[in-house]
Amino acid sequence: MVFFSAILQWFTNFYDKNLGFIAFIIRRWEQVVEYTYNHFTLVITVMFFSLILWISVGLLISRYEKLANTAFGIGNILFVIPSISLFGIFITIPMLGLGRTSAALALILYAMMPMVRNVYRGIKSVEWPVIEAGRGMGMSAKQILFQIQIPIAWPIIFAGIRVTVVMITGIATVATFIGERNLGRFIHHGIARESADMIIAGAVIVSVIAILLDYILGKIEYKITSPGLKRE
């Protein structure tokens, strides 16, 4: 009995000290749901525009080689700008100000590098004899793009989408500092109020979501890859 109560005691202590964030999550459940909802709608908006924009740009630069260097140059510059700066710069643009549009625009810019690079790499990974054979058999440029190049590049493009989704989910937390009410807010307010439970709750939720997303998208990536492209 004594032994059990000692263990129980230890657990309670451990819980109070280190797992208080669980109680916090339960207590503030409604807020967790609201922030998660906001977080995801932002990520989905960003991904929607990024897919359209950056896949097109990726396809464009794989066709017009001269543009590729310019695009990668811009991408590299965007990459050395800290996320907080990019958000900050957008809110000072008079038309935009604090809010979702600024947050979304900054994140779309961040999505450029991984998306464009992977589309380009994917398209370039198609070996020329395959295209030559396709042309020789009478496939039109459109058929070559949609039946050869994109399907073969697709696993690499999807890997880019996966990296981007995970990255955007992570960086979106920083948008809390320009007024987004998302999962970053627990961390932001937690630091301001020196509330350990709040910070850990925020960090844990965000990390778990990121890891889960990466895992699920990884599974999908494996599933949609043609067995013919899976050779080790």
């Binding site: 995970v166 960086i171 990390s207 990121a210």
Partner: peptide, 19 residues
């Protein structure tokens, strides 16, 4: 390592603060 890399930077910065 790969999993660790998916953890958002803000979370990494913040999570040690309480300790």
């Amino acid at each position: 390592f790969n999993m660790g890399q998916t953890i958002p930077p803000l979370a990494v910065i913040a999570v040690f603060f309480p300790f």
